[in-house]
């Protein structure tokens, strides 16, 4: 009886190993493509990226430094909000993109809306970047809005020379 169970486990393990090896490359490739698309999106001028430090990517346009892409994950209302921020060489936000979030649908989840994210363009470290000051928060979602603001500030601080 134990032998039968062992046999089942063996066949199952073999099958899974095969599927794993077969799909591993594709899954990694998918993740890489997705991430590179995001990098390109926040730093359109760059054509190639190299990892500078943890969560900081240096975007190159040929030989010239085009800017940095910084990933941050501040705590939102119901979990981390993963943000990728494109920052120019002068230290200004080019574009930000929410990679992942689990905020409340219809409220905090509205932080992914372009109208909200557009406000961060051109912000620099000396700006307040706070709701009620220079950022219009999502109505009814102060905590989520504040989290994104904090994330953007953190991203700018990370590449401060």
């Amino acid at each position: 009886m134990g032998l039968v169970l062992a046999l089942f486990c063996l066949v199952s393990a073999g099958l899974l190993a095969w599927v794993y090896v077969f799909t591993k490359g594709i899954i990694a490739e998918q993740a890489r493509i997705k991430f590179e698309t995001s990098l390109k999106e926040v730093l359109p001028q760059a054509s190639a990226f190299t990892m500078e430090a943890e969560s900081i990517y240096r975007g190159m346009d040929g030989e010239r430094l085009a800017g940095y892409a910084v990933s941050v994950a501040p705590r939102g209302y119901s979990g981390k909000i993963a943000i990728l921020a494109g920052v120019s060489v002068e230290g200004k936000i080019i574009k930000i993109k929410i990679l992942e979030q689990t905020e409340t649908a219809g409220l905090g989840a509205n932080v992914i809306k372009p109208e909200f994210l557009r406000q961060f363009v051109e912000k620099k470290i000396s700006d307040p970047i706070e709701p009620k000051k220079d950022i219009q928060a999502i109505t009814g979602a102060t905590i989520s809005s504040r989290a994104v603001c904090r994330g953007v500030k953190e991203a700018l601080e990370k590449i401060k020379p």
Partner: peptide, 29 residues
Amino acid sequence: PDEIRIPIFIIIISTFVTISDYIMKAYFP
């Protein structure tokens, strides 16, 4: 065998679930 059918069902089911999980990750990310 009748006595250990449930563990064996679970092995079979979880094998297929894991396969479908990998396939979805690879082709429908």
